[in-house]
Design a protein around this nucleic acid. Structure first.
Length: 601
RNA sequence: GGUCCCAUAGCUCAACCGGACAGAGCAUCAGUUUUCUAAACUGAGGGUUCCAGGUUCGAGUCCUGGUGGGAUCACCA
């Protein structure tokens, strides 16, 4: 039973004994805020209606009861309606020893869900016509971290990537390459495949603008010019050929997509993320059509005279939505209906999470409404994890204005900055080149990942390229530094005869503990709450906040308390165990965010 | 225009289910190293939580109305 549960039970008993009431809702418990003395605080306003006494008197009565009967409360004070409880230090010691028992054998105690679920997390989901950018990075890091958090809570997670590998936008880069590429390949140009294809996507846009401009100058109105520009007509013709299975077009498509996948794989590997299941839209885009046909047969959808098929969403408060064009082809949402269904056919999913930007909020509401209409009982298990955009100081990233922050370039820059900063610090002179490069990668990626993941997913965030990303303060690097520091202490203690027994000796739970030691124990204890909150809210930001608080708490402890001191072996044993626990939890928390720790830096 | 989201220190972000004097980091200023890694630690200054009402013992948080910003409402994806 946790400390909180014990307190709650005792309070309930106390209310029964003192005022003869049984309350149904949970007792409000919170950590005592610093200026006040105590560990946990109960807000007693809610109980005054039972006691018929002032908040102060009520608090005092409950406090007295808890000291007498709970077995873990050593003292209390009441300020206004707040009952501040001090928990016996032996209770804190016992929680720590319990934690350390697990850590000693390589397990970090985290929150585990009562019943494990099967969850799909779809993330990344790129188009195959351009390289990944900063927006994708937020998506990918969120998807990976959310998956890892759910896995650590005991759930079975399928990491999925739905690749948008077909459609008019893919044909645009294909036609531009065909017209202007002169057979250029990643090998011949030395360009990463996704960047090469992206180059032709840009080329298409330039050429298209050019042609539209000339047509307008030649007397056409804008709409007409846009519809009749030769390169656009060629792209459309290419899409028709693709859909008809034209061998030459398919070959070109396969070749160029292959380049893109090679490029993406490199980026994914650098980001340290992986997938269990790939879906390709070229293979799933027709599935939705069948659902629509069934819906039409069942009369849950309707057809207009021109042949187009619609969903009536009046009841849901939305406009009607077209699902099949009058020419019988499917639209974007139709494909999504199909893949949503496929996911549930393939896996027995309790939850299907989509990591997709908040610009698609409306799309997902409509998607669920249509699935409901089609009689898919699982429609409610779909969850859109809607995250905010990443903006620049100048505003939105725009590919046409060239303000997009490229993922690979950004990672390069992070590496370089890590290298410069580390070289300046001058602590790694004995590192081999390979070791040094590994370290720069760990530090650079950590700075980037933490910077993005510490922000509440839901919120729009700002990225300032000129200020780049910090390595001091509330950063991934700071947390890694704390880990490396602990490693250093443990390493040295491990080679000292008198101290190395910290790994085998047991600490007496009746030992007195100092303020910073207790603060650290409380932080360590808090990890279960943090992992619980992160898993239930699907928020890596909560893990980031925890990791930072833990690191800060350790640094304060480190500053004030000698850890490895041969003059006081029993004390050092305890502190080394504390340090080892902090290191293990930091490592675990960062791993949930996809961040690796260095042993030295 | 309809719908949805957002607004907290100069800047970037916190604040669990409505709880105490709204917290960190960066930046600014002042300190700490013969001692376990100073990428650290300690301290100072910095706030009408966009505005106006309301609910409540208590509101940054909930409700109503404004202001400002963003997204979305295609036989685009």
């Amino acid at each position: 039973m946790t400390i909180e549960e014990q307190i709650r039970n005792s309070v309930n008993e106390g209310l029964l004994a003192l005022y003869e009431v049984k309350i149904n809702d949970d007792v409000k418990l919170q950590a005592t805020t610093p200026p006040h003395e105590g560990d946990l605080t109960i807000v007693v306003f809610a109980f005054t209606r039972f006691s018929k006494k002032s908040p102060e008197v009520t608090g005092t009565e409950i406090g007295e009861y808890l000291v007498k009967h709970s077995g873990i409360v050593s003292g209390f004070n009441v300020i206004k309606g707040f009952l501040n409880l001090s928990i016996s230090s032996s209770v804190w010691m016992k929680t720590f020893l319990h934690t350390y028992d697990a850590i000693r054998v390589g397990r970090v105690p985290v929150w585990i869900a009562d019943s494990p679920r099967t969850v799909m997390v779809e993330y990344s989901s790129p188009n195959t016509n351009k390289p990944l950018h900063l927006g994708h990075i937020r998506n990918i890091l969120l998807g990976y971290a959310v998956s890892e958090i759910l896995i650590s809570a005991g759930h079975k997670v399928v990491k999925a990537n739905l690749i948008n590998d077909r459609g008019i936008h893919i044909c645009k880069s294909m036609i531009a390459w065909k017209l202007f590429g002169n057979g250029e390949t990643p090998q011949s140009s030395g360009m990463k495949g996704d960047h090469l294809v992206g180059k032709y996507y840009v080329k298409f846009d330039q050429q298209y603008k050019d042609e539209v401009g000339k047509l307008i100058a030649g007397g056409l109105d804008e709409k007409e010019a846009k519809n009749t520009a030769p390169i656009m007509l060629e792209a459309q013709s290419m899409l028709r050929k693709w859909e008809a299975g034209d061998a030459e077009t398919i070959a070109l498509w396969k070749m160029m997509n292959g380049w893109v996948y090679e490029g993406f794989d490199i980026s994914y590997k650098r980001l340290g993320v992986d997938f269990d299941q790939y879906y390709y839209e070229s293979e799933t885009y027709l599935l939705g059509k069948n659902l629509v046909k069934e819906g039409l047969k069942a009369d849950t959808l309707y057809q207009k005279e021109d042949g187009s098929v619609w969903a009536d969403l009046g009841e849901e408060g939305f406009e009607d939505k077209v699902l099949l064009r009058s020419d019988g082809t499917s639209v974007y949402i139709t494909q999504d209906l199909g893949t949503a269904d496929l996911k549930f056919q393939q896996y027995d999913l309790d939850k299907s999470i989509y990591i997709v930007g908040n610009e698609q909020d409306h799309h997902f509401k409509v998607l669920k409404a249509i699935l409901k209409k089609l009689g898919k009982t699982w429609y409610d298990r779909i969850f859109h994890l809607s995250y905010g955009m990443v903006n620049l100081p100048s505003g939105k990233m725009k590919s046409r204005e060239g303000t997009v922050v490229d993922a690979d370039e950004l990672m390069d820059e992070m590496f370089t900055t890590a290298k410069e900063t580390t070289t300046e610090a001058g602590k790694i002179s004995e590192f081999s080149e390979t070791e040094a490069n590994e370290l720069f990668t760990k530090l650079g990626m950590s700075a980037l990942k933490y910077y993005i993941l510490k922000v509440d997913p839901q919120k729009t965030m700002l990225f300032n390229p000129s200020e780049s990303i910090d390595f001091n303060g509330n950063t991934g690097t700071f947390i890694q530094y704390t880990y490396a520091r602990i490693s250093s202490v443990l390493r040295k203690a491990g080679t000292t005869d008198a101290l190395q027994l910290f790994r085998t000796v047991n600490v007496n739970s009746e030992k007195t503990i100092e303020e910073k030691e207790k603060a650290l124990i409380k932080m360590l204890y808090d990890y279960k709450r943090a992992t619980c909150d992160a898993a239930t809210n699907l928020s890596p930001a909560l893990i980031a906040a925890y990791a930072y608080d833990l690191a800060k708490s350790f640094n304060q402890f480190y500053h004030e308390c000698p850890i490895a001191d041969v003059a006081d072996i029993p004390r050092s044993v305890f502190r080394l165990q504390l340090a080892e626990s902090a290191a293990a939890q930091i490592k675990h928390a960062l791993a949930l965010l996809g961040i690796e720790v260095p042993e030295r830096m």
